[in-house]
Design a protein around this nucleic acid. Structure first.
Lengths: 207, 183
DNA sequence: AACTTACTTTTGAAAGC
DNA sequence: GCTTTAAAAAGTAAGTT
């Protein structure tokens, strides 16, 4: 009888300790990424649901925490790439992606892939671009989506290309190198995407 | 009629050619054979007749990959047995060959909206993470196969045990997309 | 900017860590 | 889970020329 009690207390302590560690991990990563409180809370909710469904078995707390944060960012429409989450996590991008798919399916998160539009505000502020450029970029992305120019392409690359074009159209030109750096893609990718967008959307770019 | 250009790209099969193998001896006798026990427990051997690659194990079991059709699998395994006999290694007469996996490609000849397909097939039934990979992953239970769907309309069907499984997989996808008006 | 090479995803068996 | 094999799809990346 007493043994059973002690065991429960021990398990309870371990569970609480793990939860506390996970929450501090979430806080640490969220702080490093400068994420708002709402995202941290969303991530905590996702993590707790994963715990309630025993999804941590065979997985590291760090991995599930990172995956929960990745999912939370997407749910809150302030996406971070797996690479960005990976940079502040001690778990590899590959495992975060794998864990994300697992908890996403098990918790039925049903998240649509990230829209390039969701990256526009962050990328534009990183490039010190005004709201006008953001609006232009978003408009270009809306048209791109309608003309099937985003299927299968990386959201960050498409967003970067749209911003690159918008910055030129608004007379606030940023170089491909600058846009590539804030978006975390290569100049080659921006070149490929922006040429495709300009061509299909009949946008004339005068350099 | 409708031609989806279904093409088998790779066939993986397994069999047992002997009760045991001396991989070190085979490595010494077979030109190009690679065997690093600490790296991988099997010996790797490539042939170009019909092109294929073998993984040979000490247990006598063999895995054959890279063949372009089921007939070639039997051909290359037969050739392999003869080569082994050629260096004095006895092999089992009529080895039971099991096709474990077939990879095929196909083309629906239509540009696809993967976001719409993701919703149409149900987010809980698919995986589509363009940040990581450009194809949408669709797992089918009917013929138990996995289909990778690309925006170009090209498909990759894998996991099937027979060419028929692959064809059925393509047909299931075609029909589902068609019924949702996404083709 | 072109080329080439290479890695992402999926599948399956084998024997061992 | 990993290791090794092969193969396609399309996007992205990295190293050369």
């Amino acid at each position: 009888r007493l043994r059973k009690w002690q065991r429960r207390i021990r398990v309870s302590n371990a569970t609480e300790r793990n939860l506390a560690f996970a929450l501090s991990e979430l806080d640490r990563m969220a702080s490093a990424l400068g994420l708002p409180r709402t995202v941290r809370e969303t991530a905590a909710v996702v993590y707790r649901k994963a715990v309630d469904k025993n999804l941590i078995r065979g997985r590291s707390i760090e991995g599930v925490a990172a995956a929960a944060l990745y999912a939370a960012c997407r749910q809150c429409s302030v996406p971070r790439t797996l690479d960005e989450i990976g940079e502040v996590s001690r778990v590899s991008r590959k495992e975060i992606g794998r864990t994300y798919r697992f908890i996403s399916r098990e918790l039925s998160l049903k998240l649509m892939p990230t829209s390039p539009i969701d990256y526009v505000p962050r990328f534009c502020s990183g490039l010190n671009l005004k709201g006008e450029v953001q609006s232009r970029g978003v408009e270009i992305l809306r048209q791109a989506s309608e003309k099937e120019l985003t299927s299968g392409r990386g959201p960050t690359g498409v967003a970067a290309a749209a911003i690159y074009i918008a910055s030129i159209l608004c007379g606030e030109r940023r170089t491909q190198r600058e846009v590539a750096d804030v978006a975390g893609v290569t100049e080659v990718t921006i070149r490929n995407r922006y040429k495709e967008l300009a061509e299909e959307l009949d946008i004339e770019i005068i350099l | 009629m409708s031609d989806y250009n279904i093409k088998i790209e790779n066939v993986v099969a397994s069999t047992k050619l002997a009760e045991e193998f001396d991989l070190t001896k085979i490595e010494a006798e077979f030109e190009g054979a690679e065997y690093n026990k600490q790296k991988f427990p099997g010996l790797v051997y490539r042939v170009s007749d019909p092109k294929a690659a073998f993984l040979v194990f000490t247990s006598g079991k063999v895995v054959c990959t890279g063949a372009k059709n089921v007939a070639d699998v039997h051909t290359v395994i037969g050739n392999m047995a003869k080569k082994l006999n050629g260096i004095g290694i006895k092999t089992i007469d009529d080895p039971e060959i099991t096709v474990q996996n077939i990879v095929a490609s196909a083309d629906l000849q239509a540009v696809l909206n993967l976001n719409a397909i993701a919703i149409g097939l149900g987010l809980e039934n698919i995986e589509y993470e363009p940040e990581q990979f450009p194809g949408l992953v669709y797992r089918i239970d009917d013929p138990k196969v996995v289909v990778l769907i690309f925006s170009s309309g090209k498909l990759v069907v894998t996991g099937g045990k027979s060419p028929e499984n692959c064809e059925q997989g393509v047909e299931v996808v075609r029909q589902q997309l068609d019924s949702m008006g996404l083709l």
